[in-house]
């Protein structure tokens, strides 16, 4: 065989590019289908949610992580383990609220936006809004209602990408009657 050399492209890196590009194709399609950015944001969040509720199972099965004791531990698991595992980046956790129920994830580089430039007419589009849905959906499956939103985005000229997460409440488990 002749052309063996030179073909050792990093397959893991390629795989993340596959994800990035596919995501790009999805956003493009959504922008075609919907007239305004708000609708696109909503749809991305919804799809993210659907992914999150399933991704959490994959995550729990593979990471061997038990129930988190408090929101701080949750934050650590999300940033250091989950983001690392699925997107290959480790955001930093900062800006804790005094009550400890709110924090920010700071992403220095967001893998979803690797090849992206926002055109001027999409100023209200939250390109990576899928992530919010994923986080919300995943946490809901472990009995945590959380509010997730982007507060800064490098795509719109901010220095970093910031995801703000706010704990709302613990979801009570609905045990069937008569069960302990």
């Amino acid at each position: 065989m002749s052309r063996q050399s030179n073909r050792t492209a990093d397959s893991k890196k390629m795989n993340s590019e596959l994800f990035t590009l596919t995501y790009g194709a999805l956003v493009t399609q959504l922008c075609k289908d919907y007239e305004n950015d708000e609708e696109v944001n909503k749809q991305l969040d919804k799809m993210g949610y659907n992914i999150g509720v399933r991704l959490i199972e994959d995550f729990l099965a593979r990471s061997n992580i038990g129930r988190c004791q408090d929101f701080r531990e949750t934050a650590d698991v999300i940033a250091k383990i989950a983001f690392k595992m699925y997107l290959g980046v480790t955001p930093s956790v900062t800006n804790w609220s005094p009550a400890g129920d709110e924090f920010s994830l700071i992403l220095e580089n967001n893998p979803l936006v690797d090849f992206v430039e926002l055109p001027d007419n999409h100023s209200t589009l939250i390109y990576s809004n899928l992530l919010c849905g994923v986080l919300r959906g995943a946490l809901e499956m472990v009995q945590m209602a959380v509010d997730v939103k982007f507060t800064q985005d490098t795509l719109r000229g901010d220095n970093v990408t910031e995801i703000r997460m706010k704990f709302i409440k613990r979801i009570e488990e609905n045990l069937p009657a008569g069960d302990e």
Partner: peptide, 19 residues
């Protein structure tokens, strides 16, 4: 290093959405 699970889930959502 990215995992393949996100792509698979995203692909499923893509199909769900289109359909």
């Amino acid at each position: 290093m990215a995992d393949e699970a996100p792509f698979q889930f995203l692909h499923n959502e893509l199909i769900q959405y289109i359909y």
